[in-house]
Design a protein around this nucleic acid. Sequence first.
DNA 1: CACCACATGTAAATGGTTACATGATTCT
DNA 2: AGAATCATGTAACCATTTACATGTGGTG
Lengths: 166, 166
Amino acid sequence: MNDLTDLEGATLAEVARRGTATTYVIANTFAESPSEYWSGSAGAVYPLVRRLTERGYLEAHAASTGKRQRSDYSITPAGRAALTRWLLDADRAAGMGFDPLRTRLLYLDLVSPTEVATLLTEVAKRSERADAPPIFADRPAALCIHRSWWEARRFWLQLISKKPQK
Amino acid sequence: MNDLTDLEGATLAEVARRGTATTYVIANTFAESPSEYWSGSAGAVYPLVRRLTERGYLEAHAASTGKRQRSDYSITPAGRAALTRWLLDADRAAGMGFDPLRTRLLYLDLVSPTEVATLLTEVAKRSERADAPPIFADRPAALCIHRSWWEARRFWLQLISKKPQK
DNA sequence: CACCACATGTAAATGGTTACATGATTCT
DNA sequence: AGAATCATGTAACCATTTACATGTGGTG
């Protein structure tokens, strides 16, 4: 019944999407995410999958090949319920999260207008060529979310470029 | 010369903005941020300010009143340089950060379209009444950033509401 | 078979959250 | 004076990063 962290929620979601998956595959998916937030480091994901299993949200299926043991994981009914709660939590979904550009812009009066302009130009440049990440290639819905997010970002950049100072 | 985390960068920026500040004031500022990302917990900020001081980025000035000692902090030239590097780091500023809605939407195929629609409606409702946070009241530039960010978010919500499924 | 990339972890260090403790100030 | 609130921390716990260790399957 305990709430999930975002990494836990996303992990359950990735397992659910696949039906069954190894920890490695999940970690890799995060590592290839276009957001720097999802590091997908082994040291984070392996222990996390273990914890989710201990809490009864995931179920391990032995799938050894050779000497080394490996596991496939699938989501349990309890896991599915927890995942649904996490996915549909409107309060959390409506939060502002962390935005590296927004954070910096709040302090733009600490550097010269010229420097701010340069920063905005650089960011705009990068947001123009924000390409579709390979992981979403076979997921049209995800691609659509991704693309429209960047469109909204470019829209925002235009808004703040018009009146960069108060 | 080492790079700053975002919490460190924001802390230096807050001190710089004020000229001089106590740890308490900084922590409080974060706690009152409209983003849930900036918890501003004492356990995070007090040790962090101490670390920044040890690294030579902040300077403590004793300012006791009575028995308990307290310190005001100000930024050093080295701190100012590190802050500027952090502020103007275009690569980091151009990152996607963490967005709780975006993350959830990537898995919307795991729940029914009805549930997704409800979620979007709820989030839209909250983003309509996203009001100006009190801390920004006396900072027109920050207010402007904040408002335009929410405007871009509403724009995005419109985009994805048009074609919520692929 | 030697090597290299893929796969599966673990240990130490870092940084943050939660919960607590306690001093100082203001309010009634 | 006692209660509430503001201010300043610390300690234990938890999650994540970084760096390492090792197994395994294919390729020259």
